[in-house]
Design a protein around this nucleic acid. Structure first.
Lengths: 316, 316
DNA sequence: CTGTTAGCGCCTTCAA
DNA sequence: TTGAAGGCGCTAACAG
């Protein structure tokens, strides 16, 4: 009842364990004859390599570490993070690997050194990084690290948010505010640049408030916008959560959406955007996370930037 | 720069590797003297056991498999699943393990056999199971499997939903419908029983429609309820997603919430329940998932049933 | 292209 | 209580 090992396969195929290993792992040469013999023996015996033994022998780890840099301890409960983690956990299943989730503080260098020394870690997927972090990766992590977000596998947020901004402009909005992402985050750059370019090109005023992807900050941002620029007629945000907070803030102030102020989100999270009829743009988190996991494991990255499409509903 | 191995620790402590192993793994006898010597040597060298080697030697796997039984392929994108998976991924980090996510078809026996034979799997956490599945676990999985939901670690949904139903009754609702979970799911039983008991005790009519935790089915269920029992004055559901669908369905029919019909959800998902002001009950998914993961790994289960508290907002 | 020989790092009988 | 020896299952360097 115990599964056969490599030796059994080799014996049955009439070759040495080394040859069987070469054939089955696809590393190293092997004649067609022995290749066939080994393959046949393997299927006949129902041989399945032991992933743990394999990893140990190769000196490779057995898990992907999804490291999320953020100042909030609760970041690991964030829908974006949980979705990405789950997608990776499903993606690495065929490889016999697992996924571990860990938060990194903003000053993450020391933590990365620790990770580099952890022999159970096969590869690392980084999120919430800034430029500096990517450029100063520990030597031991180079070649087995991938990033989700700016500089790595990412959604084309500039295109998605750009399209929303253009829609706002096309529908007559002229005083558009943006609730952006936090400054410490590299990924905050692209949407901000898209906004800056568009407002400048269209001769619109620039009204930016920094958010942090939470609804709470969105709400506060809405208040700030109303106070600083009372004639604002649209508020674009960089996440559905932020947009939800903005909606709550506007509702509390008795402002009608979209009549008085239009609102857009970003992410198109199914349950979140459906109810308020949030106008937003898609964010294929799962494919991105899977691509990042594969890239971290050494697969050639087929795609760096995943498209984002506007989804217009009721709020803009 | 390469980390020290057990042999190095043993050498420095003046004992054999076997003794060092016994001390550091906490298995097997060791004199106080050698115990101290080994411990000191280990900390001095900054020794960290190699998780993969350890697991191989013990014949244990390196990952927890979170197996979710469901008929929908998209179940792995469900917020409940992703939250649980992420929580486990964070929880097993200290053990050097990882988490893998996999869907199981309703007829899951064969899949479980495969899992039992997978030597990379240290333990299994099961969700979406029915009674039969738990009772017919493959031998190889017994002792290293835990379940989330009925019969395992679970939220006290009967209490949470019971409290909501009582609230509905207390506020004058007398024709309360329930959109339940799917019949093939063991966890659907508790809320249904709570509903049945309450309606019977209060002499109310029983109006049950089966849902499946999706908003789409919630919407359909609302339509069904309106058609079959037009005088319904409250609709309780077993998930926020379902409740959202119900809200959308009622809105489409021009029905006012809560004036005409009150609506309750279950889960209290932050972003989801906030905007419509959904009245719901809490569901501590993360603690439950962590407890299940620990239980699967052999830790004594400290708690089987986690409390659920009603959260009253605008819809009921 | 192939087999032999050593590991990978730890755990676990077994005899002392 | 301890050490020696032999795995766990597979891979990699090295002759041949």
């Amino acid at each position: 009842m115990t599964s056969p090992d490599l030796a059994a396969v080799a014996r049955r195929a009439g070759v040495s364990a080394a040859t069987a290993s070469r054939v089955l792992s696809g590393r190293g040469p092997a004649s067609t004859a022995s290749r066939d013999a080994v393959r046949r023996a393997a299927t006949e015996l129902g041989y399945v390599p032991h992933p743990v033994a394999r990893r140990l022998a190769r000196g490779a780890g057995t898990r992907i570490l999804f490291a999320v840099r953020d100042r909030r301890a609760g970041i690991l409960h964030d829908p974006y993070v949980t979705r990405a983690a789950a997608a990776m956990a499903a993606a690495v299943d065929p490889d016999g690997l697992g996924v571990t989730l860990r938060r990194l503080p903003l000053a993450a260098t020391a933590a990365l050194e620790t990770i580099a020394a952890d022999r159970s870690v096969a590869a690392v997927v980084l999120a919430g990084h800034d430029r500096d972090l990517l450029e100063h990766l520990p030597t031991g992590l180079r070649g087995r690290t991938a990033a989700i977000g700016a500089g790595g596998t990412d959604v084309d947020s500039a295109a998605g948010i750009g399209a929303l901004l253009r829609h706002l402009h096309d529908t007559g909005r002229r005083r558009i505010a943006l609730v952006s992402g936090p400054r410490w985050l590299a990924a905050s750059g692209a949407p901000l640049r898209a906004y800056t370019e568009l407002t400048r090109a269209a001769g619109l005023p620039s009204r930016v408030v920094a958010g942090d992807f939470t609804a709470e900050r969105g709400r506060a941002a809405a208040v700030t916008v109303l106070r600083r620029w009372p004639d604002t007629d649209a508020i674009a945000t960089v996440s559905d959560a932020t947009a939800l907070g903005v909606l709550l803030g506007l509702a509390a102030a008795g402002i009608r959406v979209p009549q008085d102020i239009a609102v857009t989100g970003f992410d198109d999270i199914p349950l979140v955007s459906a109810y308020p009829g949030l106008s937003t743009a898609t964010h294929p988190v799962e494919p991105i996370a899977q691509a990042a996991a594969r890239a971290a494991l050494g697969a050639p990255a087929p795609q760096r930037l995943f498209p984002s499409h506007p989804v217009l509903r009721a709020t803009a």
